[in-house]
Nucleic acid binder design. Structure first.
Length: 473
DNA sequence: TCCCTATTCGA
DNA sequence: CGAATAGGG
């Protein structure tokens, strides 16, 4: 009887692509050397799929990209195995089913859950004599790679970025041109469908690569300026939801881009992953100790709950905030500058806990990545890694006038304001004939909200400082 | 990746 | 008297 071919498993998690995929590449090399076959697999993780932040739209987005990945593999001559359940158990069942598994390959992710999961999988595979290979690839520089001259992690983005640019970047690995078919005895499995509440962007690596090309052609050259203009379609790359599920390699984006400002955005992706890997408790706690215990309103009591609902439902009466929240609700995306304005409005003017906003954004954004989302919310709230003065309070009116002066963005998302002229578009409450269907009064006065936050912060930080002094003595 | 106010500057 | 700029929160 002929000896069965060795099998090399590629376990995809959050890198749903075949291009620049070091784990796939290595598995293919091993298969070439030992005459074996590569079996790619996605296991839909019940532990992740049952989490409340994985809303139907995000489940659907993920699953459609799994479907597209299967198509990528089919066009190479192979296929993608799809399972669902407890990931380690499913992986073990697959190993038993396939037999002769020599190695398993993954691209690493670094959340506490991911690290625990991989450790369990590695141990299980060792019992079956399967070699475990963890590769980089989800980041340009993996957590822990960018270190100070003293070998420590960076605590400020500016310094991290400075070092980041000096480091040699990993080579892109070639996408395979052809693969061997999967052993016929393997049941490839169905990919479930989940109904999304919104229209999803086109799934798959081809769509992601196409989007990158589009951005490099249209938006990149003028990125420094136009990234602040939410009214423009090409204002930002809109690649975040491809990066998040790994339909696009961040390293490829780095190599193809010429714009350092945009490359700096890619650096943030690495930086916030590095921060979270080093300090996992910052997922739910203020990174800066002096902000621990800040008296945020929590969105549970009657008054703050009412405010929170208005913010969520785009009924604050501030057109830029409401337009942003509608874009988010309706598309799973929000333009970058508007994200800052909406987030700042919640934390500062409404004094509501950044964690509350973070969770809402994470569920609604297709790119809802924990590391990035937490990092950015803490940045806005002023309690994050980067030193940020508490008085950074965005004014939704002046931001609108400055960056979307004719109001195109606002009118696109708030049809009730479609006839409002540019000079009133950010202050519709001052109009004599107020637009129908839109709040006639803002939820809170800008000065009132601003002062309340500033006063609360001043007092809190003073007490905190005095406390620290007392402890010193 | 800020906001506001005071002040200066040029018309 | 509006635009540009500096300083401080």
């Amino acid at each position: 009887m002929a000896q069965a071919k060795p099998v090399h498993i590629v376990w995809h998690r959050a890198e749903l692509r075949t291009h620049d995929h070091p784990a796939l590449n290595h598995a293919l090399e091993l298969a070439k050397a030992d005459g074996g076959v590569v079996v790619p697999v996605v296991i839909i993780d019940d532990a992740i799929f049952s989490r409340s932040d994985l809303t139907p739209r995000r489940q659907a987005h993920f699953l459609e990209n799994v479907r597209a990945l299967r198509e990528s593999y089919r066009s190479l001559g192979a296929n993608l195995v799809v399972r669902r359940g407890d990931v380690v158990k499913e992986l073990e069942m697959l190993v038993r089913e396939v037999g002769h598994v020599a190695s398993a390959h993954v691209v690493s992710t670094y959340t506490p859950y991911a690290k625990k999961r991989d450790e369990k999988a590695r141990k299980m595979l060792a019992e079956h004599k399967v070699e475990w290979h963890a590769h980089g690839g989800q980041y340009t520089h993996e957590p822990g790679e960018v270190l100070t001259n003293e070998g420590k992690r960076y605590g400020v983005f500016g310094a991290y970025r400075k070092k980041w640019v000096t480091l040699d970047k990993p080579d892109i690995v070639e996408a395979p041109e052809k693969m061997a078919p999967l052993p016929t005895k393997i049941n490839v499995g169905d990919i479930p469908r989940v109904e999304s509440d919104i229209v999803l962007p086109e799934a798959g690596e081809d769509a992601a690569l196409g989007r990158l090309e589009w951005f490099l052609k249209n938006g990149e050259k003028t990125y420094e300026k136009t990234r602040d203009e939410p009214g423009r379609e090409d204002s930002t790359s809109r690649l975040s939801y491809y990066f998040n599920i790994g339909a696009l390699s961040p390293r490829l984006a780095y190599y193809q881009s010429k714009n350092e400002k945009w490359r700096a955005e890619l650096t943030w992706w690495d930086f916030y992953a590095d921060v979270m890997e080093r300090c996992p408790e910052s997922a739910t706690q203020e990174f800066r100790a002096k902000w621990l215990g800040f008296p945020w309103r929590d969105g549970h009591d009657k008054a703050s709950k009412a405010d929170l609902e208005k913010w969520k439902n785009a009924e604050t009466g501030y057109p830029l905030v409401d337009a942003g929240m509608r874009e988010l609700n309706q598309t799973g995306f929000m333009q970058n500058r508007v994200r800052m304005v909406c987030a700042s409005f919640l934390c500062k003017h409404l004094l509501i806990d950044w964690r509350v906003g973070e969770e809402i954004f994470r569920g609604l954004l297709l790119c809802g990545d924990r590391n990035q989302n937490v990092g950015n919310w803490q940045w806005v709230a002023g309690c994050g890694v980067d030193p940020s003065p508490y008085f950074r309070i965005f004014n939704p009116t002046s931001q609108g006038k400055k960056f979307d002066s004719n109001g195109d963005y606002v009118r696109r998302w708030i049809p009730e304001l479609k006839d409002v002229p540019a000079k009133s578009i950010y202050e519709p409450w001052k109009m004599r004939d107020k637009p129908k269907g839109y709040p006639t009064e803002p939820i809170i006065g800008l000065e009132e909200g601003r002062d309340r936050f500033a006063e609360t912060a001043r007092q809190f930080l003073r007490e905190k400082r005095d406390e620290a002094k007392r402890d010193e003595k």
